[in-house]
């Protein structure tokens, strides 16, 4: 098993480690389907969760993953913390570290924070989102969803639609999908494409109606309501008209194709009507897979020496 210290960005892993984590996820899928979906793999270890940006779903996903592995969880969210009293990022990390944490899961509005904090702690650092830069565990979960559906990511045509420029999910996904050999295409208004997207390992397709026909995976990004105020698009109506997955457009998808979205959805903007409930829309699957993959990530980082074979659930102990 290759040894990884941190998961700050997709490049911390590389293709082999990504595949290893996807394989591990199958084990944890089995665990999650047990009557008591809990194993003692990380018992005695502490996972600190440090969320400087609001996020219920990602934080809970990590917390659930840690608890299913029997790790202790320390939650730290900025609104109730000393950060509001002016404590510096560095002081916060050093305090958490000295309380004893083997892993720190961090989300911050500013790019680069996960890399900065590795200078100030011996703990493994897991990036839960740094500005518009990366969200590697989301990508791993998305790779897992695609792999469960198609058997692999390799060779699949994955079309990502939406505000690429401001999306950490898009940046991590372009890296992860490309590393696994997918053919990635981006569809977005010109104002929402990064200035140097021509140097990315992707095709840029202007017209969603063209791209949608060849997509094995149609991956929709959330269109933030603020972008209209910044004149990045004239209106949300115009966005939906040209870039939204409307009922008409959804008819153009191949029968075998799937629809994905990292959540939360702006219904009526990037995705309309009942589409999220369609059988080929795997949006809720993505959420469940997120917990499983985060179990695999935490185990990959902290679980060395704890064999997976024969990991039994906690019998009488509670969570």
């Amino acid at each position: 098993m290759t040894s990884t210290k941190h998961v700050r960005g997709v490049d911390d892993l590389g293709k082999d480690s990504i595949l290893e984590i996807l394989e591990l996820s199958n084990h944890f899928l089995e665990v999650s389907n047990r009557r008591i979906p809990k194993v003692p793999a990380l018992r005695g270890k502490t996972v600190a969760s440090l969320f400087f940006e609001d996020s219920t779903r990602t934080r809970l996903s990590f917390e659930k993953a840690a608890k299913r592995l029997s790790a202790d969880v320390m939650n730290f969210s900025v609104s109730s913390s000393s950060v509001k009293k002016g404590e510096s990022l560095r002081d916060t990390i050093e305090t958490i570290s000295s309380m004893g944490a083997e892993a720190i899961v961090v989300r911050h509005k500013s790019v680069g924070v996960p890399w900065m904090i590795t200078e100030w702690t011996d703990a493994s650092v897991v990036n839960a989102g740094d500005g518009a830069h990366e969200h590697p565990t989301q990508s791993l979960a998305d790779c897992y969803t695609i792999t469960r559906q198609f058997g692999s990511v390799e060779g699949k045509r994955i079309v990502i639609v939406g505000d690429i420029k401001h999306s950490r999910v898009a940046r991590s996904n372009v890296k992860a999908f490309s590393a696994l050999g997918a053919k990635v295409a981006l569809v977005a208004p010109p104002t929402l494409l990064p200035s140097s997207v021509d140097n990315w390992p992707v095709d840029v397709i202007e017209d969603l109606d063209v791209a949608i026909k060849e997509a094995d995976v149609l991956y929709l990004l959330r269109m933030q309501l603020e972008r209209q105020k910044e004149s990045l698009v004239p209106s949300l109506r115009e966005y939906t008209n040209f870039y939204g997955l409307t009922l008409d457009r959804s008819q153009k998808l191949q029968k075998s194709s799937i629809i994905m979205h990292p959540g939360p959805m702006n219904r009526g903007v990037e995705i309309t009507g009942d589409i999220p409930a369609f059988p080929n829309a795997l949006i809720t699957n993505q959420v469940g897979n997120g917990v499983i993959v985060r179990m695999a990530v935490l185990y990959h980082l902290l679980g060395s020496g704890v064999g997976l074979a024969g990991l039994h659930s906690e019998g009488e102990e509670d969570g």
Binding site: V111, G112, G131, A132, H133, E134, K165, H166, S167, R168, R171, P194, S195, S196, V197, N199, W200
Partner: peptide, 15 residues
Amino acid sequence: NEGNVSSDLGIRGVA
């Protein structure tokens, strides 16, 4: 600077 690096990092750049 607005360029390859700013696009890769997701940091707002100045052309």
